[in-house]
Simulated assay, not measured.
Amino acid sequence: MTKLLLALHVLAAIIAVGPVTVAASMFGPAARRAAERPDDAQARSTVVLLHRICRVYAGVGIAVPVLGLATAGVMGVMGDAWVIASLVLTMLAAASLIVFVLPGQEQLVEGTEEGRGGGIATVAAATGRLAMTTGIFNLLWVAVTVLMIVRPGSTTGA
């Protein structure tokens, strides 16, 4: 059972978190292109698509901590420091996505759809803030991944 849960947990992380990190990182440059070319429907649709990918896969990403908790429970490591740290970092990553990244993207999507991006300078400032919060989100997931691999005190010898 442990191996099945662990495999599902890792697959969920790859399938759900991977697309969010990539699409969120691509969003800022796409939004700037759309602001620079307000008549370019393809540029606008790219921004909308990247935001949709982030929204949908953020929802799917709920499976990652759920399966992680199930795996940790079966393995009997729920009280280990690396599991607790991973959970805290995962909650911080989820909060940054929900509170900063997705709403920031939503504002830029609405601006490009309505043709009211507020000017290139405004979009550049908004995408700069968005890049910072997206970077924090991505770094939090890097830290969680490292903890999952290193697992201080594990018996794997790594």
Rank of each mutant, 00 (worst) to 15 (best):
residue 55 R to P: 04
residue 55 R to F: 14
residue 55 R to S: 10
residue 55 R to A: 14
residue 56 V to W: 03
residue 57 Y to I: 05
residue 59 G to S: 07
residue 61 G to R: 04
residue 61 G to E: 06
residue 62 I to N: 14
residue 63 A to Q: 03
residue 63 A to S: 03
residue 65 P to T: 01
residue 65 P to H: 02
residue 66 V to H: 08
residue 68 G to Y: 00
residue 68 G to K: 01
residue 72 A to G: 08
residue 72 A to I: 06
residue 73 G to E: 01
residue 74 V to T: 05
residue 74 V to W: 01
residue 74 V to E: 09
residue 75 M to R: 15
residue 75 M to F: 10
residue 77 V to C: 11
residue 77 V to Y: 04
residue 77 V to Q: 09
residue 77 V to L: 06
residue 78 M to F: 03
residue 78 M to T: 13
residue 79 G to S: 14
residue 80 D to Y: 06
residue 81 A to N: 12
residue 81 A to P: 05
residue 83 V to Y: 10
residue 83 V to M: 13
residue 83 V to E: 08
residue 84 I to W: 06
residue 85 A to E: 06
residue 85 A to F: 00
residue 85 A to P: 04
residue 87 L to D: 14
residue 87 L to P: 12
residue 87 L to H: 04
residue 87 L to T: 09
residue 88 V to A: 15
residue 89 L to G: 10
residue 89 L to T: 07
residue 90 T to G: 12
residue 90 T to N: 07
residue 90 T to I: 13
residue 91 M to A: 15
residue 92 L to Q: 09
residue 92 L to H: 05
residue 92 L to P: 10
residue 92 L to S: 00
residue 93 A to V: 13
residue 94 A to L: 14
residue 94 A to M: 08
residue 94 A to I: 13
residue 97 L to W: 07
residue 98 I to G: 12
residue 98 I to D: 04
residue 98 I to M: 11
residue 98 I to Q: 10
residue 99 V to P: 01
residue 100 F to I: 11
residue 100 F to W: 15
residue 101 V to T: 05
residue 102 L to D: 09
residue 102 L to F: 00
residue 102 L to V: 11
residue 103 P to L: 04
residue 103 P to R: 00
residue 103 P to A: 00
residue 104 G to T: 07
residue 104 G to H: 02
residue 104 G to Q: 04
residue 104 G to C: 07
residue 104 G to P: 08
residue 104 G to E: 07
residue 106 E to Y: 08
residue 106 E to R: 15
residue 108 L to M: 02
residue 108 L to A: 00
residue 108 L to R: 01
residue 109 V to H: 08
residue 109 V to A: 08
residue 109 V to G: 06
residue 110 E to G: 15
residue 110 E to K: 15
residue 110 E to C: 08
residue 110 E to H: 11
residue 111 G to L: 03
residue 112 T to P: 09
residue 114 E to Y: 02
residue 114 E to L: 15
residue 115 G to M: 03
residue 116 R to N: 06
residue 116 R to E: 12
residue 118 G to Q: 05
residue 118 G to C: 10
residue 121 A to G: 06
residue 122 T to K: 09
residue 122 T to H: 12
residue 123 V to K: 03
residue 124 A to Q: 14
residue 124 A to S: 13
residue 125 A to G: 02
residue 125 A to D: 05
residue 125 A to P: 11
residue 125 A to N: 03
residue 126 A to P: 01
residue 126 A to S: 07
residue 128 G to R: 10
residue 128 G to W: 14
residue 128 G to N: 15
residue 130 L to Y: 12
residue 130 L to C: 01
residue 131 A to G: 02
residue 131 A to R: 11
residue 132 M to D: 05
residue 134 T to W: 00
residue 134 T to Y: 02
residue 134 T to R: 06
residue 135 G to I: 03
residue 135 G to N: 07
residue 135 G to P: 05
residue 135 G to D: 09
residue 137 F to E: 14
residue 137 F to P: 04
residue 138 N to C: 09
residue 139 L to Y: 09
residue 139 L to C: 08
residue 139 L to M: 07
residue 140 L to A: 01
residue 141 W to S: 02
residue 141 W to Y: 13
residue 141 W to A: 05
residue 142 V to D: 12
residue 142 V to T: 11
residue 143 A to L: 08
